[in-house]
Amino acid sequence: MSEKILETKNLTVNFDGFKALNQLNFSMDVGELRVVIGANGAGKTTFLDAITGKVQPTQGKALFQGKDLRGLSEHGIALGGIGRKFQTPRVYLNLTVRENLDLACNRHKNVFSTLFGRSSSSERRTVAGLLETIDLVAKAELSAELLSHGEKQRLEIGMLVAQSPELLLVDEPVAGLTDEETASVAELLLALAESHSIMVIEHDMEFVRQIARQVTVLHEGAVLCEGSMEEVQNDPRVIEVYLGEPPERDRELPSVG
């Protein structure tokens, strides 16, 4: 059991009678790269909210490395080792790329060590290494508002890694990117997957095919099915949910959901 990085048990989130998550049981191994897909309103983002402490579950619980996450604050969970990337790039526009990474990289995040501390040489090395990983060395001293959409996405993923989390939660990292940028993000995530556990939420089937090993399909706040991309694609329930038609009519998923 201790090998599970993330586990949810009967996780339910109830918004005034609407169950965004309904008895969701999910588990993920250490070192896994998992893709979660699902139609609009399937509860994907609420799922992340419930894990990262933005929303408290009405029932059930989420366990991270066996520890219950209920009642912890967002920053507490982040410090505990879960990094979250938002759907749209959320970087500090008025700071430079390097400063963005440096803030995320800070090992001691309480007030006074942030005030009196300076970035250590190991932190500076981490930042320099990350700049290469996300391919933004040339733009390190530019303020982040001058980056393109795709560069911001990469920067935010870099900031996530700078936190040195055990688990990365990545919400739609390729929304609004060109094919080329999508491919570079896919490459980045695959490289990171070698040393991190990653959960990616995505709509873009082409992208999912590029990175997916294990796929979970959410539907109406619960897990519909799980398996390899191949299996999931041919599952009649998935096809029905996606297309709203009987399975014998069509066997292809839409390429962009």
């Binding site: 967002e74 920053h75 982040a78 979250r84 959320r90 970087v91 995320a104």
Partner: peptide, 9 residues
């Protein structure tokens, strides 16, 4: 909220 999710209070 980005600050919050980066682990700062």
């Amino acid at each position: 909220s980005r600050v919050r999710f980066s682990g700062y209070n």
